[in-house]
């Protein structure tokens, strides 16, 4: 895992213990850390320090995390990772749809958070000119609309390819099912998750070694899907 040197991370959390361990962990990886205990302080610090990434706890005492997201998104596209708790999956979806880039569920490991932060920072750097996406044995050639698994070309239907392309565009991030539905079928069908499930099943059959236990296209239960990047792949057993 490579850190992005000199990147500034704004940590927004009302719990001093959490800020403390995040600061220790992030500093050790070469990040500069700015702390804000409240939403108001966070919005102020964001304008003055211009962080490269924001880690935001959704449960703040003074204002809802969603207001901080909205405030930031008014003028900035800085990557945001939110910290949520289990059982509040609705919050995750709302945050993702509100412009957040990723989430981590508490309690989380430092490695997990660092991986998310690293992926987001790499993405937010000036776009690479690469037109192929590769993870494990999967290779997606965006220019020629070709998909290969272990060197063998796989034929996808148009919709299947569109679905894959959307995930490649945001590879490593969770893409909400509502977003995918809107993109693929238009706003009128954004509630019909079932269509999406069926297409995902077919897409997995086409490209996953074991479609019932996917390696590349993983489900974030009730939230959406994530196309894993190389550093998100599980270590081979």
């Amino acid at each position: 895992m490579s850190s992005e040197p000199n990147a500034i991370v704004l940590v927004v959390d009302d719990e001093p213990q959490i800020r403390r361990f995040l600061k220790a962990g992030l500093s050790a990886h070469g990040y500069g850390v700015v702390e804000a205990p409240t939403g108001e302080a966070a919005l102020k610090l964001a304008t003055t320090t211009r962080p490269d990434l924001v880690v935001l706890d959704l449960g703040l005492p003074d204002m809802e995390g969603f207001h901080v997201i909205a405030g930031l998104r008014e003028w900035s596209s800085v990557p945001i990772v939110v910290l949520t708790v289990r059982g509040r999956e609705v919050d995750k979806v709302r945050a993702l749809d509100g412009g957040v880039d990723d989430y981590v569920t508490k309690p989380f490991g430092m490695a997990e958070l660092l991986a998310r932060i690293g992926a987001l920072l790499r993405r937010s750097r000036p776009a690479k000119s690469a037109t192929t996406f590769t993870v494990g044995g999967l290779e997606v050639d965006l220019e020629r609309r070709l998909v290969r698994v272990d060197g063998t070309e796989r034929r996808l239907s148009r919709k299947q390819y569109d679905l894959l392309r959307l995930l490649v565009r945001d590879a490593g991030k969770v893409v909400t099912q509502q977003h995918l539905l809107r993109e693929l079928w238009g706003p009128a069908n954004s509630e019909d998750v079932q269509y999406l499930r069926i297409f995902m099943r077919k897409l997995r059959l086409a490209i996953e070694p074991d479609p019932t236990r996917p390696t590349y296209l993983v489900t974030e239960l009730g939230v959406g899907y994530r196309l894993r990047t190389q550093d998100q792949l599980p270590e081979p057993a």
């Binding site: 289990r86 998750v193 499930r197 019932t212 239960l221």
Partner: peptide
């Protein structure tokens, strides 16, 4: 916490099209 949710009766059920495979994997 799960137990507390059970006891307080605030358990909301949000149904959606679900693949059992996804549930098992998670």
């Amino acid at each position: 916490l799960d137990l507390a949710r059970l006891r307080s009766g605030e358990m909301t059920v949000r149904r959606e099209a679900t693949e059992m495979a996804d549930v098992v994997n998670a």
